[in-house]
């Protein structure tokens, strides 16, 4: 919010100076290589994003046998699409939870900010902020309303608090109006927010609508 802006700026510069100090000391000690920061920016800023998760979702929408394998063993099904965790990738056990006409799922980590990096890239800031982490386990319907998502009162709301090394991905419902779409076309429709469970996909307007 705007009234917080100046305040944020101040504390960020504090952390920025402290980070610069630590970086300088680690460079002097040879613990950090000068090229590493740029490598992180290139790797996490550009290469790893939510596209992997969207590919998994698109495949599940297109291939019923894959959908069943995905719901039974998320890690193995993601590996079929060459999506593997690796160091820090947090894919040792992926559980995919499916939205339906009667159930809506939403994912959080109240204790830190655990998140399926290998599928969704780095988490957005709101996911790591105290407001989301404190509230979504207690009043998920109110939180989702702030995202513009009204979950009907008669629809079950399942919250998944990632308190161990299991990581969660929401399989959204396939929107109407996407019949005949290729997997690539489908993947392009799936935003990160739908795979965390704070958004759903709206029906696409048909021809001439």
């Amino acid at each position: 919010m705007s009234h917080d802006h100046d305040h944020d700026h101040e504390t960020l510069s504090g952390a920025a100076l402290r980070a610069e100090a630590l970086e300088a000391l680690l460079l002097e000690k040879g613990v950090l290589d000068p090229s590493e920061v740029d490598a992180v920016i290139a790797n996490y800023g550009e290469r790893v994003g939510p596209l992997n998760g969207a590919r998994v979702v698109a495949r599940a929408w297109s291939d019923e046998a894959y959908r069943q394998r995905l719901l039974a063993d998320g890690t193995a099904a993601a590996a079929e699409l060459d999506i593997v965790g690796g160091p820090g990738g947090q894919m040792e056990r992926l559980v995919v939870v499916e939205n339906s006409s009667t159930v809506h799922n939403v994912v959080v980590c109240t204790l830190c900010s655990c998140y399926p990096w290998a599928l969704l890239g780095l988490p957005p800031r709101w996911y790591k902020d105290p407001a989301y982490r404190s509230r979504v386990v207690r009043e998920p319907r109110a939180v989702l309303r702030e995202f513009g998502l009204e979950v009907p009162a008669d629809k079950a709301l399942k919250v998944w608090d990632s308190s161990a090394e299991v990581r969660y991905l929401v399989l959204p419902e396939r929107p109407e109006g996407t019949e005949g779409f290729s997997e690539e076309q489908l993947a392009a429709l799936v935003p990160r927010e739908a795979m965390i469970g704070v958004a759903v996909l709206k029906a696409l307007a048909g021809e001439g609508a």
Binding site: M1, R125, W126, A131, R133, R135, R138, E146, D161
Partner: peptide, 11 residues
Amino acid sequence: LGGRDGFGLLE
């Protein structure tokens, strides 16, 4: 943080 109050709306 789970269940605490006072952090306001999401940004």
